[in-house]
Amino acid sequence: MQELLEYADSSQDEVCALIIEDTRLYPCRNVHPDPAHHFRISDADWLAAEEEGEVTAVFHSHPQPVPVLSGADRAMQVMTGLPWWLACNGELRKFRPVPHLLGRRFEHGVADCYTLFRDAYHLCGIDLPDFKRTEGWWLRGENLYLKNLSATGFHQIPPSEARAGDVIIRQPFPGADPCHAMILLDDNMVLHHDHAGHLSRREPYRMAYMKQTHSIWRHELCSSLDLRGISADISARSH
């Protein structure tokens, strides 16, 4: 980690490198025409790195205080399918190669509302654990959301205090457990993925959703939640 941070501090432009087998830094020249704000690794450097071993991650720095992946970064990360490591503000963050947040097809336990919630928080700087969920858990009194939120650093807040980044838990079926999560965004929008047949999407927090709202939750590290991670990904997906 120290080697990566020192490399990042070696230039006022974005520096870039490839990580070999998760243990070795292979520095690359930034050939982007605007290196102060973007980076590009040449094909020659990538091929040369592959001759040294398996490329397992892409590394670059942000000289500006933006510790999340940009839209351009996310577009390229999804294309490479690799973890991307980012040095910014003297810290190193490692981002999993999650799919774009919008337009996902629903598959319970694999690509569902918790997957979207967890991936969105990851892109914004907070890592949450995954948990096993089987079909119909919301009808068996398992209360997976309420139990896991409390166990992973969330606390319930009054609806009147809700702000962007908070998690809304809905009870969409009468008699069922609260079983659907949405992330509240700016301008009273929500990001969510509700059930099979619907793609993950961003839409207004409309009255029907408000009536189904069971509770609203905030993470103890909410000050570390950088919602630019979500907006950058949405921008990349929209282009």
Rank of each mutant, 00 (worst) to 15 (best):
H60V: 07
R29I: 07
P65Q: 14
S70G: 02
C28W: 03
D22I: 04
T23K: 01
E91F: 11
W85F: 03
V68W: 10
M76G: 08
P65G: 09
P35E: 00
V58I: 15
W46E: 00
V66L: 12
E91Q: 04
H38G: 08
D34P: 03
R40W: 05
P65M: 13
N30D: 01
V15E: 10
D34N: 03
R24T: 13
I41S: 04
A44T: 15
D43P: 07
A49T: 11
G81D: 15
V31W: 06
P67L: 10
S11A: 01
F39N: 07
V66N: 04
A75D: 14
D13V: 11
P63W: 01
F39V: 06
L47I: 13
M76T: 13
T80E: 15
G81I: 15
N89S: 09
P63I: 07
V55H: 01
A72S: 14
A57S: 13
G90D: 12
Q12S: 02
D9K: 02
A8R: 04
E50Y: 07
S11I: 09
A87F: 02
L86S: 10
V68K: 04
M79N: 04
V15S: 00
W84A: 06
A57W: 12
A72P: 06
T80W: 15
V31A: 09
I41E: 05
A36S: 14
E91A: 08
L25I: 00
L69W: 05
H32A: 02
E6N: 12
L25T: 11
V31S: 00
A87S: 08
S42F: 15
E51F: 08
P35C: 04
I41Q: 06
